[in-house]
C-alpha cells in the first residue's frame, strides 16, 4: 500500500520535473540565437509567478476569468439540459436535430468570434456566447444519454401515479439524470477552460487571455510564461474539483 502511494506521488512529480528540465534546456538552446528568450526560462518564470501572485492585478484577471467560466457553464446548462432532455424523450426532435448538432459541434467555437462580436457587441457577451457554445455539447449529449438510460419502470410508475409533466420531470427525470448532467459539466469545464483564453483575446480588457496579450505587448515575456503556468495550474485545479464533486455524487 505505502509503496504504491509513494509511486502515485513520486511518478507524477518526476514527470513534471523532467518536463521543466526539458523546458530549461529548450530555452537555453533558444537563447543562443535569440537572447530575449532567456526570459522564457523556468528560472525566471517560477520566481515571476510568485511575484505575480503577490500582486492584486493577477487575482483580478483570474477572478474575471473564473466568473466567465461560471457564466458560460450556466448558459450551457440552461440550453444543454432542456435540449438534451428533449433529444432523449422525443425521437422526432432527436431525428430533426441529430445531424444539425453533429454539424455545429464540429465547428470550432472560435470561428464564430467575429460574428459574435458583430452581433453581441464588444464586451463580455460574445465571450459568454463562445464559452456556452463550446460547453453545450458535452452537457447536451450526456443529458440525452441519461434520459435514454432511464428505467422504463420509473416512467410507468410516475404514469400510474397520474404524475403531471412537471412532477415527472422534477421527481423522476431530473434526479435520475443528475449524474449524467454532472459528467457533462465535468467535460464542459475542461472545454470552457481551453476556449476561455483565446476567447478573452478579443474585445475585452480583463481576464487571463487578455493578460497574455498584455504581457506580449509590454514585451514582459517572463510574466507571459508565468501566466501560462498559472493557466495550467488553475485548469488542473478546476478539473480536480469537478472530478472530486463527480465522485462524491456517485459515492453518496
Amino acid at each position: 500500500m505505502k509503496h504504491s502511494l509513494l509511486h502515485k506521488l513520486l511518478a507524477p512529480c518526476a514527470g513534471l520535473l523532467f518536463a521543466v528540465f526539458l523546458w530549461w534546456l529548450g530555452t537555453l538552446w533558444l537563447t543562443r540565437s535569440m537572447p530575449i528568450a532567456s526570459n522564457l526560462s523556468p528560472l525566471r518564470a517560477f520566481p515571476e509567478l510568485f511575484a505575480l501572485l503577490g500582486s492584486s492585478l493577477i487575482w483580478e484577471h483570474t477572478l474575471t476569468s473564473l466568473q466567465r467560466v461560471l457564466a458560460g457553464l450556466g448558459f450551457a446548462l440552461l440550453v444543454g439540459v432542456p435540449a438534451g432532455i428533449l433529444t432523449g424523450i422525443s425521437i422526432g426532435f432527436a431525428q430533426t436535430t441529430g445531424t444539425l448538432f453533429q454539424f455545429l459541434r464540429m465547428i470550432s467555437p472560435l470561428s464564430w468570434m467575429p460574428i459574435a462580436v458583430m452581433v453581441l457587441g464588444v464586451g463580455d457577451a460574445p465571450v459568454y456566447f463562445l464559452l456556452a457554445f463550446a460547453a453545450v455539447w458535452p452537457i447536451l449529449l450526456n443529458t440525452a444519454a441519461g434520459v435514454g438510460q432511464l428505467d422504463e419502470n420509473w416512467l410507468l410508475l410516475s404514469r400510474s401515479l397520474s404524475a403531471t409533466p412537471w412532477e415527472r420531470l422534477r421527481r423522476v427525470i431530473l434526479p435520475a439524470i443528475a449524474p449524467h448532467i454532472l459528467t457533462g459539466v465535468r467535460l464542459a469545464i475542461g472545454v470552457i477552460w481551453i476556449v476561455l483564453v483565446p476567447a478573452e483575446m478579443l474585445g475585452v480588457s480583463a481576464g487571463l487571455g487578455y493578460f497574455i496579450l498584455d504581457t506580449r505587448d509590454r514585451l514582459a515575456y517572463h510574466e507571459l510564461m508565468a501566466t501560462i503556468l498559472l493557466i495550467g495550474f488553475l485548469g488542473f485545479l478546476l478539473d480536480q474539483l469537478a472530478r472530486y464533486l463527480h465522485k462524491r455524487w456517485f459515492q453518496r
Binding site: 410508475l157 410516475s158 401515479l161 397520474s162 404524475a163 403531471t164 412532477e167 421527481r171
Partner: peptide, 9 residues
C-alpha cells in the same frame, strides 16, 4: 412514500 403527494393523488 413516493408519489403520495402528487397532485392527482
Amino acid at each position: 412514500s413516493f408519489g403520495l403527494d402528487f397532485r392527482h393523488q
